[in-house]
């Protein structure tokens, strides 16, 4: 959609995953997974239930440490770093079940997403020095811009409790953008959304990718995913069974076989998001 696969802005891939493996006791949830993702690319990660999508997602987000293998961000090994360290390196995420900060306004939620950029010496905060106050004012303006970007500008002073589920998802997107991401991870972004909200989110994700930010999404909703992804990685039983363009994935015999008997079949070729 934006950059054809394989053409990152800085040459090498933004994210590279090599032989990534995660074992839980005797169960191998992810086994030797390989893929890469370039800046400005939307990469979809799909597979039947239990395929290892969430485990992969959590390893990249820093909430699970890999058992083996490498995660490289712009060539630097980041596997096993905790979640807050991944965020500080520009890997931001959204949650499948919205995880907003209750009792805070929309604006404060987004400003919380700017933590890494704003964090400074606490003595400066206590002293009320000018630099801290300027940064806070700029952050507020930036938060309002981001809220306008996702279409929530009018609600910026409201408490998050007033939002619908779909609006919450948009707020999570704005909050992730606030962290100045190189890579955004979306955890089933279409889950629970009405068709119109899905369309709005598709539009926003495309604009994010157009800003040269890498996007990794794991998704159950195939129509949504195939309509938005530049490339797709298909997992089954922790292994990559296919990788490629959405059109090719839909015709891949291994993919069709993996999905047979699953409640969500592969939609007909050419099926795009309505």
């Amino acid at each position: 959609m934006n950059n054809p696969p394989g053409t990152g802005s800085a040459g090498g891939p933004l994210l590279a995953v090599h032989e990534l493996t995660r074992r839980f006791g005797g169960l191998t949830a992810v086994a030797g997974l390989d893929f890469d993702l370039h800046a400005g690319e939307v990469l979809g990660l799909i597979g039947p239930n239990g395929a290892g999508k969430s485990t992969t997602f959590n390893m990249i987000a820093g909430t699970l440490a890999p058992s083996a293998g490498q995660i490289l961000l712009q060539g630097n090994s980041v596997g096993g770093l905790p979640a807050h360290a991944m965020a500080a390196r520009g890997v931001l995420r959204t949650f499948q079940h919205n995880c907003l900060f209750a009792g805070m306004s929309l604006r404060d939620n987004v400003m919380t997403g700017m933590h890494v950029g704003l964090a400074s010496n606490l003595l400066g905060v206590i002293g009320g020095i000018a630099r801290v106050r300027t940064a806070e004012t700029a952050a507020r303006a930036r938060a309002d811009e981001l809220l306008a970007f996702v279409g929530l500008a009018d609600a910026r002073e409201q408490d998050v409790a007033t939002l619908s589920f779909g609006q919450g998802r948009l707020l999570e997107t704005a909050r992730a953008l606030a962290g100045d991401p190189k890579l955004i991870l979306f955890d089933e972004p279409a889950a629970g959304l009405a068709p119109a909200e899905c369309e709005r989110l598709t539009d926003i994700i495309e604009q994010i990718a157009a800003r040269d930010i890498g996007v990794l999404l794991i998704e159950h909703d195939m129509r949504f995913l195939l309509g938005i992804a530049d490339r797709v990685v298909v997992l089954d039983h922790g292994e990559r069974i296919a990788i490629g363009l959405p059109e090719a994935i839909q015709r891949d015999p291994a993919v069709i076989k993996a999905y047979l008997g699953s409640t969500r079949g592969v939609p007909a070729a050419g099926g795009t998001h309505a």
């Binding site: 965020a87 500080a88 949650f95 900060f101 404060d108 919380t112 997403g113 400074s120 606490l122 962290g179």
Partner: peptide, 24 residues
């Protein structure tokens, strides 16, 4: 009213989401 206050409230409300925002 600073980034630290927001971080504290975020940690109180949802430590997992706070960590995902880069908060230690």
């Amino acid at each position: 009213q600073s980034w630290f206050g927001r971080a504290c409230r975020a940690v109180r409300d949802n430590p997992q989401a706070a960590a995902a925002m880069g908060i230690d």
